[in-house]
Simulated scan of single mutants.
Amino acid sequence: MGITEQYYHEWKTSSKKTTTMTTAPAKLYGKNLSEYDDLDVDQLLSQLSPEEISILAKEVDPDDNLLPPSERCSYECNKEATGPLNRKKLIEHINKQALETPDLPELKPYVAGTIRGKKWIAPETNGKTEHEDKIAIDIDDEYGDALDGASQEEIIDLAAILGFHSMMNQDQYHASLLNKGQPVGLGWDGVTKATQPKVYPPEPPNQTDPEDSIKRVRDDDPKLLDLNWNNIKNISDEKFENLFIALVENTHLETLSLVNVGLTDRLAGKLAEALEKNCTLRVCNVETNFITPIGIVHLIKSLLKQRSLEEFRATNQRSQVLGNKIEMEITKLIEQNPTILRLGLHLEYNDARHRIASHLQHNIDRIRQSRVGANSA
């Protein structure tokens, strides 16, 4: 008899003995569990033969995810490999077996129109739920009398004032805020109907002539304070370059809007060079273009030299996320700018948003204090 069979026999005999005694301590192979604490498992395994080890391995599932499933399960396939795996032939064989295998016969054949089993019938509720939760609220007599005598419209208005949005629908809430009176048929049990959206006429296309505006910027027209090229399509790079060259010598233009005109990094670099030398521009808007985060940093860095721009907007570019490194660099540049008051840029990190907002507020407070001091003097 092998060691494993001997242990198994001792365990069976000990288990039979211990099942009759409910107060006896737990035992394994006729010994208390505490006696196995100092047992050398490696020494016991070294005494087993390869056959006994294979038998023991089938009864034990090692909790090791690094072992392949074929070595963890007790099933062993002794067949030799017939060749490399051919997935296509395997799928064809499985499909063939599935088609050739007959379906299991039904116990009862299907008959159209025949209802089997019991039909579910909803219980009669008489319009009332079985469990109605009632909430008792202690209200003063004065408030209780006022609420008892209040109409439904007055209660809806009170709920809107107190901010109980879940107690009313959208039409009731807006009617209460605008003091319009409640719509007919929209009480507590009313259903809000979809309102037709208002049709607004499309915005007319931008009629600004790029050639004429470039000429006016080059001639430093004192009446040209706001230049808007928003949404003008197919503006050539040559026209942009001519505009930026003319912007260098201009002393009257205050607002430059270049939204959705297809600006790239190369043109943004030309604009940055113009912003470094222009001293009258106060607002620059380059939203909805194809400027990369590096190009935005270049534009913001150019504002440190001229220090006259108060508002800069550059959201909705091709790259929506700037990244932590770019946002920190933009934050450092903004903190060095004493004139910027508004920045239109989407920042993802709270640290950058907080530091930029604090600096912009500091600039606004400083300009306000200087204005108040000049008026008082």
Rank of each mutant, 00 (worst) to 15 (best):
D140T: 15
D141N: 13
E142Y: 11
E142R: 12
G144E: 05
G144F: 07
D145K: 13
D145L: 08
A146M: 09
L147N: 01
L147D: 00
D148M: 06
D148G: 10
G149C: 04
G149Y: 03
G149F: 01
G149S: 09
A150L: 01
S151A: 00
S151F: 00
Q152I: 03
E153D: 04
E154L: 00
I155M: 03
I156F: 02
L158G: 01
L158Q: 02
A159F: 00
A159I: 02
A159H: 01
A160C: 09
L162K: 07
L162H: 03
G163F: 00
H165E: 09
M168N: 10
N169P: 10
D171G: 13
Q172T: 06
Q172A: 04
Q172F: 01
Q172V: 03
H174P: 13
H174I: 14
A175S: 14
S176G: 10
L178G: 05
L178I: 11
N179C: 10
Q182C: 09
Q182V: 06
Q182W: 01
P183G: 00
P183F: 02
V184K: 14
V184Y: 07
L186Y: 08
L186A: 03
G187N: 01
W188L: 10
D189H: 11
V191E: 11
V191F: 11
V191Y: 11
T192I: 08
K193R: 14
K193I: 13
K193C: 13
A194T: 15
A194Q: 15
Q196V: 15
P197L: 15
K198R: 15
K198E: 15
V199Y: 14
V199C: 13
V199T: 15
Y200W: 15
E203L: 14
P205W: 02
N206K: 11
N206H: 10
T208W: 02
E211W: 06
R216V: 03
V217K: 07
V217H: 05
R218A: 10
R218P: 03
D219N: 13
D221C: 08
P222N: 02
P222H: 01
K223M: 12
L224A: 06
D226C: 09
L227D: 04
N228C: 05
N228A: 04
N228L: 03
N231L: 06
N231K: 11
I232V: 06
I232L: 09
K233S: 10
K233G: 12
K233E: 12
N234A: 03
I235V: 08
I235F: 02
S236I: 02
D237W: 06
D237S: 09
E238K: 14
K239N: 13
F240N: 04
E241V: 12
N242V: 04
N242E: 14
N242I: 08
N242A: 13
L243T: 04
F244Q: 06
I245C: 10
A246W: 00
L247I: 02
L247F: 07
L247S: 06
L247D: 08
